[in-house]
Design a protein around this nucleic acid. Structure first.
Lengths: 342, 342
DNA sequence: TATTAGCACTCTTACTGTAAGAGTGCTAAT
DNA sequence: ATTAGCACTCTTACAGTAAGAGTGCTAATA
């Protein structure tokens, strides 16, 4: 186990490095934080901490900086909770006040708030339709060969999609199908629909197989990648403010990843498995491009079911205590809002 | 007027600078381009060109680079047309092949293609609904206090929006209103609707004023800022590849602007007034953040009516001949595709 | 035994001077 | 009108130096 004094030192170094961005030496610690011991003692402790992998040295005669393991320990055991200031709370309230009820708007504004307050890059993943519950479906013929499929799911989302159909179909047939779907699918999550009902559906509507196939496919997969499932990003330029990205190659490869919605959404979805705030530090990230970064995520839910993720990405040297509080707060608020809209 | 030899020299300098990014000296010109004259002569010509504002010198003993005026002259009068390579044409074909019929997808892929081929940052502005023509509207009650408004406009776009209504309304009343709207508005652009009909509509449906007001508002303004009207951006990270953005402050302020959809959309809409390719160089841009950049835009249309803009942004030192060809080609293709989808 | 003072050592950074290279402008010659 | 020649300017790269920060080790101390 790690001793009490070592903890204090590790914490001091991490706090200092997070706010200043420069390696910390033993003298500085002794001066700034009153630990009641001299620099030499601190040096010894630091040497120990380095040996145990909590600290590293950029070069021989520099001060120490936290390693990934050091940050991890800091986040799990050392950091104090930093509340949001009243100004920040006010900002959040104001921004949300202008949002209309559309989910897209809500997510976009959420991303904006996160990036503005944190000064990192915000990532907001829309609700995963797969986890939402079927409420009802409607199909409306808008042209001889075009049908608008309208799906309403439980956390108050409305998704629409225009489907091109091969063969003509009467509104009567459509109605028939729709009423069947509505009767049988109500309340199921789309994932359950996928697992249990797809075959039955296909059999039942064998007659107009073409459209059913399309409709069901649509219901299950086609609605993926709809606006609500997108990744909303804000504050990309914030990243350029941190000296760790003065190396343009790093910045470029990071930007590249952020631009790739597909990869990004994967990275974020890892966090959706468990509820709550999750911190992923440096090399803990699977993707190489972000192993100099930390990603913080939080989940939002509807009816106790996690359906989406919000988060942010920034340098490892991140104000963890602040962003954890922030994301927790925003995620809770978002869950509330979605419940009301329901 | 500017002499023939001066033109050759200006062109040589511009070409060279565009591809290499370094100031060009008289010797280099004399060696690389066979103009039949020595460096000293070229020096004199260059001094003239500088005096007339076509060239500038980063510092006393450096070579020359084109000024904004120089680039302008180059684009208007000097540059040769650079065709797309067969590989590039193939790339375009392939990318579009995977697009489904949804407009959003189409625009997203368009942005991707532009940024991949040009290596600059692509900006694609969706169709301006104001300029599209009303085809038909539908209103569907999906909850006691929610109505889905479905608007189909002429270049094959379907826009939907869920409206919260204050007072209850029967489906019969909705139908009444809808049929009136469909009878009277068919074929008008949304702008015309706005100008001529709004008062009449309000009078006519005075009885259920609340919903009408909402519906009309929606029709005219509410659908703004819908997905199709967004700005699609791709290849932001490309910009970091150009040495002119090694200055992180420049890069940051540019990124900031690109992230601000509102500003960006304004910048692009300037170009929508006239049809065709438009080149805006350096200080010709109104916004300060992009006065080191050039923006190239092209318009796409439906039924001879310009409804949207595609474009890209990059350093002034840009491969103009290539990107002009590229945007022209893509814009034409996009217009075609939209016509078919219609 | 734990702590500390002292000191030699290492590494970075900022500054200086120097030399090479590129390009210019001017003048005089062609 | 063009060009050759030359002195001049400015940038860049390089090397050397000094200052500063921080370390690790050893010996002294409470």
């Amino acid at each position: 186990m790690i001793g009490e004094r070592k903890k204090k030192i590790l914490r001091a170094i991490t706090d200092d490095y997070i706010s200043l961005g420069e390696p910390i030496g033993s003298r500085t610690i002794a001066r700034k934080y009153n630990l009641g011991v001299g620099p030499a003692t601190i040096r010894n402790e630091m040497a120990d901490l380095e040996e145990n992998g909590y600290l590293e040295q950029p070069h021989t005669s520099a001060g120490r900086i936290p390693s990934d393991k050091g940050y991890r320990f800091y986040v799990d055991a050392l950091m104090s909770i930093e509340d949001l200031t009243s100004g920040e709370l006010e900002t959040i309230r104001k921004e949300y006040a202008v949002a209309n009820r559309e989910i897209e708007d809500l997510l976009r504004i959420t991303a904006k708030i996160i990036s503005n307050i944190s000064n990192y890059t915000a990532l907001v993943l829309g609700p995963q339709l797969q986890k939402t519950a079927f409420r009802h479906i409607q199909m409306i013929q808008i042209a001889p060969d075009e049908v608008l499929v309208l799906l309403v799911v439980d956390p108050g989302l409305v998704e629409t999609r225009v489907v091109q159909i091969g063969s003509a179909i009467s509104q009567r047939e459509l109605d028939d199908m729709v009423s069947f779907l509505n009767r049988h699918l109500f309340g199921l999550t789309l994932r359950e629909v996928e697992r249990t009902l797809i075959e039955e559906l296909k059999k039942r509507f064998f007659a107009y197989n073409d459209l059913v196939k399309e409709a069901v496919e649509l219901l299950l997969k086609g609605l993926r990648n709809k606006p609500s499932e997108r990744v909303y990003i804000d504050g990309v330029s914030n990243i350029l403010g941190y000296p760790e990205f003065y190396d343009l190659n790093k910045a470029k490869s990071l930007f590249n990843l952020i631009e790739n919605e597909h990869i990004l959404s994967n990275v974020l979805q890892n966090a959706t498995s468990t509820s709550g705030v999750r911190v992923t530090i440096g090399k803990e990230n699977v993707r190489e491009e972000i192993q100099d970064c930390s990603i913080i995520t939080a989940t939002y839910e509807v009816r106790g079911q996690v359906i989406g993720t919000i988060g942010l990405i920034g340098p490892k040297r991140m104000n963890y205590s602040k962003v954890v509080t922030l994301l927790e707060y925003i995620a809770t608020g978002l869950s509330e809002t979605l419940k009301k809209g329901n």
